[in-house]
Write a protein that binds this DNA or RNA. Structure first.
Lengths: 167, 167
DNA sequence: GTGATTTACCTGTCCGAACAGGTAATTGCG
DNA sequence: CGCAATTACCTGTTCGGACAGGTAAATCAC
């Protein structure tokens, strides 16, 4: 991948068919790539830092709660936590109250990452904002949230409908 | 995954550390999910439709050119094309001029998808725009492109620097 | 023309994301 | 109490995306 190259000479047809959709796709790709570059220096992969940031704030959490807060998938959560455990950043213990549940908790090594990750997250945000004024940043945030609401309003009834079929 | 649920009661810490970055992440996720739902009806996965749309416009292409236009990765392109070939939507032939190169070309089944995919892409764009006026859509597009430029301006020097180290 | 380099593609590996399906532990209803 | 349903988690598989490394073909330099 190399979005650093200038725009392709011939813009792909999707830029005509759905300019906003295509712009979202492009922005997300390059943003994720930058996040990945910055996170690599901490030995993390994109996504893992969100989990750790939440654990730093709240302490031990059940996987189910992590899934809810991070809007993740149960299978993804299982494996992400397993990898962070293997990397030594997280510890898992069986809950005593509910022996189905697993409590996830940062280790000393995980806590030690906090400063670096937070600085990195700030750097990512600084890059994203660029030269935007505070007012422009607020406006951009409003646009992103508006678009998210638009898409969500369509995606969720659609998802519910699909699930109803499977029932 | 279920971003259809209301916002988690406690917003994750990243929404404070980097509101724009977090908003981009969320928007991209739900947008990609909607695209995936719509594409499934065509028997495609997100990403494959971009490749097909380009082939419909231009006809046979070398993989290298597809990588450039779509901003993809050579390994990803190899496997995406292989899957589309296995699905019967694409045909691969060795170039005569340059026997290293592979020409990718839509089959009849691939061409037959065109209408459905284009309608679906329109639906995706309609959902994304929601009730936005034309002027608001143009404004949103400007914001997305501005953010992309901001991120790109930081990500690319950084990528170049990393590559220089490897040299 | 021969050898080094570049180009085009393939494979292996790892990661996040999503879906399907399975197993224990818990809960709730009769 | 006992059985069904739910919940919490795990595993398998497939996909896109990224990185490292490898092979064959073409190109360039001498």
């Amino acid at each position: 991948m190399d979005p650093c190259r200038a725009e392709p000479a011939a813009a792909p047809p999707c830029s005509d068919a759905g300019p906003l959709s295509y712009a979202i796709f492009r922005l997300a790709r390059v943003h994720r790539m930058l996040a990945g570059q910055l996170l690599r220096r901490c030995g993390l992969h994109p996504g893992q830092e969100l989990l750790l940031m939440h654990l730093w704030e709240t302490g031990a959490q059940r996987q189910t709660d992590l899934i809810t807060v991070l809007g993740s998938d149960s299978a993804t959560m299982t494996r992400t936590v397993q990898r962070l455990e293997r990397a030594g950043f997280v510890r898992r213990t069986r809950s005593e109250q509910d022996r189905r549940a697993v409590l996830v908790e940062p280790t000393a090594a995980g806590l030690a990452l906090r400063d670096r990750v937070e600085r990195m997250w700030e750097e990512l945000e600084r890059a994203t904002c660029g030269e935007l004024t505070a007012a422009e940043q607020a406006g951009a945030l409003g646009v992103l949230e508006r678009l998210e609401r638009n898409v969500t309003d369509v995606a969720c009834p659609l998802a519910a409908e699909e699930q109803a079929i499977g029932t």
